[in-house]
Computed example of a mutant assay.
Amino acid sequence: MVDNAPRGAVISLGGTIAMTAQAEGGATPTLSADDLVAAVPGLAKTGIEVEVHDFRRLPGASLSFSDLLELAVLVETLAADGVDGVVVTQGTDTIEETAYLLDLLTTGDTPVVVTGAMRNASMAGADGPANVLAALRVATSTEARGTGCVVVFAEEIHAARWVRKTHATSPAAFTSYPGPIGYVAEDRVRIMARPAPSLTFDPRSATAAARTAIYTVGLGDDGALLHALGDHVDGLVVAAFGAGHVPMACVDGLNDLAKRMPVVLATRTGSGPVLRHTYGFPGSESDLLERGLISGSTLDPVKARILLQLLLMTTADNDQVAQAFSALS
């Protein structure tokens, strides 16, 4: 053991990075956190002391809010115990959601890094080991302190609030708008921008039952499904056209829902803000906001649902939900 060596923790949730091909066909999660760390070439030369935690062994699509609330408590415990940074490995299907949820549930300056792999360990060019190495470099660096939760993939560093999975199979699947906040090059972590601090919640307080959904509007949408959906959710995110627009046929349904529950208006484009007063036709952003819908600001629909779900799980009322979203830039 080296005095003053950086300490990093790796928490494995499963996913492609932990998968190997099976004789009966298809890849499934089989690798432990120890296996993942052991497969990283050059890790010993970094001097990073790594502790491992097998937390779950699930595909990313099967992780739940309860899994991630428990994970956030573990991350906070490790930070309090003095680790310099935490790396979470998981399936890429839900990395953008997990990262943003951890950004909302963890406090302090300890870096929290989420990573994974697009190619499982049995494939040629498996990207897991390189991503874990880069993630550990970021997590244990002084440069990354205070950046909130980030996603490290293909040696790029993305803020949790902005990162998105934008390709189904590419090793460079993760992008963000307005772009990465940093990168790793020649073993050095370089942070180019720091996002504003996010809202934070105590994961132990998110105990209320809540169900939320995303409703994506489409061309010719008559709004009929809104009425059926409203009977089964406690809050709704509308993935609207452009800067926050829906077909006129959807307006009455959304008007009724906004009287019963928080309805958040987001743009389905994936980047850019929901406007407030540029357009004035029925179904425009100004019309919908006047009817009680809540602006999702610059959050994409997936991230808006994460924030809405967490607010409802902490028993926030409609006014408190509106206040939380209004604090977003």
Rank of each mutant, 00 (worst) to 15 (best):
D3M: 12
S12I: 08
L13G: 03
G14S: 03
T16F: 06
T16G: 02
A23R: 00
E24K: 01
V37W: 12
E51I: 15
L63H: 04
F65E: 09
D67E: 08
D67A: 07
L69C: 12
L74Y: 04
E76D: 13
D81S: 15
T92G: 01
E96A: 04
A99W: 07
L102H: 03
L104F: 03
T106H: 08
D109P: 15
T110N: 04
V113G: 10
T115M: 02
A117P: 02
A124C: 11
A130F: 13
R137C: 06
T142V: 11
V163E: 07
V163D: 04
R164Y: 09
A172K: 15
S176P: 01
G179E: 03
P180Y: 04
R188H: 13
M192V: 10
M192R: 12
A196G: 09
F201S: 03
P203T: 12
R204Q: 13
A206V: 09
V217S: 02
G223P: 09
G223A: 14
A224T: 10
H232I: 10
A239Q: 03
V251S: 04
L257Y: 06
V264P: 01
A266I: 10
T269W: 07
S271R: 15
H277A: 12
F281T: 04
P282F: 10
D287A: 00
L293M: 12
G296K: 06
V302M: 11
L310N: 09
L310S: 08
L312G: 10
M313T: 10
L328T: 01
